[in-house]
């Protein structure tokens, strides 16, 4: 497994997609943070938590995983990948784990940047800031969610196999389907894979209503359920597929 994992991480590092996505994620996340912390008032710890939650980072990591896996079909590299690693189940695990690891690294870098820049701006404006224990708490929650989203992206890419469909599908699901669900049936929406369960772990609600959230432990279990379900579906499809 470690050789496969190393190879997948090497793949990530040897194209520009990874660097480009991290770059965009950092820029977008920082931009949103700087605008928010400069223009609006932060009166409670909850406000600050929400600013450091790294929603955009999560979305980028999810897209990175989906594009990475669907890209194997787009560039027809899946054949050479499977020839090198004929056990498709192990291959899928390695892919999912490598993107989970990439998610953790990206999230760590960006969250740290958000915290430093945000705290500097907020304290200069005499707004509420967080102590280091709270920052650490936010950090590990972000890392858990990022690992989850990296793996989830890979599994979505395995099932969908088209980069365009994966990207459009993820955006529609995250911003239209789940958003609507939160409006109509919040009790169901809090279990949703992209905003609901991750929101429970991060302890920041999609629409600012804390009562909509699952407890972090339950939310983590729900995320595990989503990953397992998509893994089972992705593995079944990948194993049964003829590569012609």
């Amino acid at each position: 497994m470690s050789a496969l994992l190393q190879a997948e991480l090497l793949k990530l590092r040897t194209t520009r997609t990874f660097a480009a996505l991290i770059g965009s994620a950092t820029v977008v996340s920082l931009l949103v943070l700087v605008l928010g912390t400069t223009l609006s008032d932060f009166e409670t710890e909850e406000d600050v938590r929400a600013a450091f939650a790294g929603d955009f980072t999560g979305l980028f990591i999810l897209l990175l995983g989906a594009m990475g896996m669907a890209g194997e079909w787009r560039h027809k590299t899946i054949t050479s990948t499977i020839l090198a690693a004929p056990d498709r189940l192990r291959l899928l695990v390695a892919k999912a784990v490598s993107y989970a690891m990439a998610g953790v690294v990206v999230s760590f870098v960006i969250t740290a940047a958000l915290m430093i820049v945000g705290t500097v701006i907020l304290s200069s404006r005499d707004q509420v800031t967080l102590d280091s224990a709270t920052l650490l708490d936010i950090m590990w929650r972000n890392l858990v969610v990022s690992a989850y989203l990296g793996a989830l992206g890979v599994l979505i890419g395995t099932i969908v196999r088209s980069q365009v469909v994966a990207i459009v599908g993820i955006l529609i699901f995250a911003f239209v389907v789940e958003f609507t669900l939160f409006g109509l049936v919040p009790d169901v929406a809090k279990f949703s894979p992209l905003n609901g369960a991750p929101g429970g772990v991060i302890d920041v609600s999609f629409d600012g209503d804390q009562t909509d959230l699952l407890a972090p432990g339950i939310a983590a279990l729900v995320m595990l359920g989503w990953v397992s379900t998509l893994f089972a579906a992705g593995a079944a499809l990948l194993r049964g597929r003829d590569l012609t």
């Binding site: 496969l4 190879a7 793949k11 997609t17 054949t79």
Partner: peptide, 22 residues
């Protein structure tokens, strides 16, 4: 239809395969 990621160099492509195959 041998296919490679267009953005990766030949050396890096082979490095990935060498890593997988030890």
């Amino acid at each position: 239809d041998a296919s490679f990621h267009p953005g990766r160099s030949a050396r890096n492509h082979l490095r990935v395969l060498a890593t997988t195959g030890r």
